[in-house]
Structures are given as structure tokens and as C-alpha cells.
Design a protein around this nucleic acid. Structure first.
Lengths: 165, 165
DNA sequence: TATTGTTATACTCTATAACTATA
DNA sequence: TATAGTTATAGAGTATAACAATA
């Protein structure tokens, strides 16, 4: 097993399997990038048959859960730029999984809806995604998964609400 | 404050501030991407005076903590591709913060060393980074930070060691 | 044959700015 | 004036493949 934490490798003789993390030890950003990167790769492999990007998956899920939602709100919740959502929804429409309808109340807005095909696709995708997530989070104790999500959300809210210091 | 969790928005009337996360509720990948993205942005703002990429920071820290380390080991620990490390070390050399020396034992390898200037820069960078991290993780309870890192590491090890399912 | 470092290439994700139509 | 969506563009991050030198 990889040793991913600090250790006592003497200077000048770094082991091949283990490395001293030095000042990165206890550094959240480093661990987060590393994990996120692996998860994107792994998730991509699991969904490779669909050739679906994480952003499309997330957008489809948000649209299905919030019929009539505007693009700008999808962007805000998923932390996308509104320009990125344009391309994501383009893709979803091309697949026939979602559609834009001009909002009657506010004609600047596109109300987004998942199609029947989109709902069906989401079911399939979720079955795969849930299996994948379960496999990963089996590395945690039963109650840690909810704890982890709670912590991630609190960190995210902190970053959204205030300026970096 | 943003409501980032599920709620009872009725179909067809999604609120502007809150959105139903639907199947994404409890979905780790989604939360992780959102947080990671914000942290990269925020960290970039904090270190903007250095015009330093997260990868350079991590590489410098690993090299400083492991004098003589090979590029391939930096890549493995930080989860970079070995080709990416070439560019990162190029940058560090250009700044005068690190240097390559051909290894005597294995002439395929470049042994990496932080320079005095590199050590000094790392001190400055770490002061800023630590301040930033402290500000963010103040959103957590005192013992949660260590818990979080422990969980992230266990998830990462799971992903590194086994094939996705 | 396998590994280390390198180069070249391409693709995804994201950021930004400018534009339009609507409010 | 401000907002929603769009377009165009550029940059960062990463993955892949091929190659030379070395093991």
C-alpha cells in the first residue's frame, strides 16, 4: 500500500514508495486536488460508454430535479460560469436529454426541462454513479460519509460567501 | 446564506437562491468538484503576486522536503503525469528555486534540489498558504480538520490501489 | 525489455470580455 | 442600469504517444 502521509525518510535518500510531504502535510488544498483528480478520472472510466463529462451529468441531474430552472441558476449551484452552462445544455439538447423553452414570465430566461429520454438516461447514469460512489466511500466508516459531505459543504459555503484572506 | 442542500422547492417553481440537488444530494463527486474549483480560485488570488500555479507550489514543497527526489516520484505522490512534472520543474528552475542534477547511481534520473532562494520562497508561500487554509478550515470544528484529511487520504488510497467499479 | 525524462499534441475545464435581448 | 443568454478566445491542467538514454 502506498504511504501517502509523512514519514521519516532521511534527507538525500527519498524512498521510491514513500515521500515526505513536508509542509504539505496537513495541507488541505494538496490532498483535495489529488483526490479530485483521481475521482474525475475514475468516474470518467465508469461512464466511458456514455462519453459524458462530469458537468453534463451534474447539469442533467439539476435540470431533472428542478423543472423549469434557468441556466444562470444551474451555473450558480454547480459553480459553473454561465458561459460554460451554454455548452453543457447544448450538449444535452443534442443528445435529446434536455430542452430549452423561452420563459413566459421573463423572456430573457430559458426554462430548462429534462425530456423522457433524459430522465431514462439519468436513471441509467445514476445506477452506475451510485455503484461507483459506494465502492469508493466503502473506504469510510458508515457515518463518515455524511460527515464528509457536511464538512465539504461548510468549506464551500465559506469560500462562496467571503473573500479569500 | 446560500442553501446548498436539498429542499422542498415545488416542481416548476425553482427558487432563485435554492435548488433541489435531486440525485446529486449525497453525491460526493459533485460536492468535491465544486469545492475544489473554488479552492483553486481562492488560492490563486491569495498567491497572485507570485503568479504561481498550484502544481509548482506542490512540487517545490515536495522537492524541499525530499532533497534528491526524482521527477517520477514527485509525479506519483502529487498525482501528476510525469510529462507535467517536466514543465513544472522547468518553471522552478527558471525562477531559480530548484535545480536538476543528474543522479550518479541511476543516470536516467534527475535528482531534484531546492535552492536557497527556493527555500526562502517556500517560507513566504507557506505563510500565505497557511493563513488561507486556516481561514477556510475555521468553518470546521477543531478536530474535524484532521478527520477530513484522514478521510480524503483513505478515499485517495482506494482510488489509487484498485480499478474503478 | 522496462524505466526516466523529454517533446509534441490535443482535449477538457474554466475565465473573461463583448455582444443581444430583455427587464 | 442590470440581468440572461450567447459567442469567441485564451489559458491552465491534464492525458497520450513517441522518442532517447539508461537500466
Amino acid at each position: 500500500m502506498y504511504d501517502l502521509s509523512a514519514n521519516d525518510v532521511p534527507d538525500g535518500q527519498p524512498d521510491e514508495q514513500t515521500l515526505n510531504l513536508g509542509v504539505l502535510e496537513g495541507f488541505l488544498g494538496f490532498r483535495l486536488r489529488r483526490l479530485h483528480n483521481r475521482m474525475v478520472q475514475s468516474f470518467g472510466q465508469v461512464l466511458s460508454e456514455f462519453e459524458l463529462r462530469p458537468g453534463e451529468f451534474a447539469s442533467l441531474a439539476l435540470i431533472a430535479a428542478n423543472p423549469g430552472v434557468a441556466q444562470v441558476d444551474v451555473a450558480r449551484i454547480a459553480n459553473f460560469d454561465k458561459a460554460s452552462v451554454v455548452a453543457l445544455v447544448d450538449d444535452l439538447e443534442r443528445r435529446g436529454w434536455a430542452e430549452r423553452r423561452r420563459s413566459a414570465e421573463d423572456r430573457r430566461r430559458h426554462s430548462l426541462y429534462a425530456t423522457r429520454a433524459g430522465e431514462a438516461a439519468l436513471d441509467q447514469l445514476m445506477a452506475l454513479a451510485r455503484k461507483h460512489e459506494t465502492w469508493i466511500t466503502d473506504a469510510l466508516e458508515p457515518d463518515e460519509r455524511a460527515q464528509l459531505i457536511s464538512m465539504i459543504d461548510r468549506l464551500y459555503v465559506r469560500l462562496v460567501e467571503e473573500e479569500p484572506r
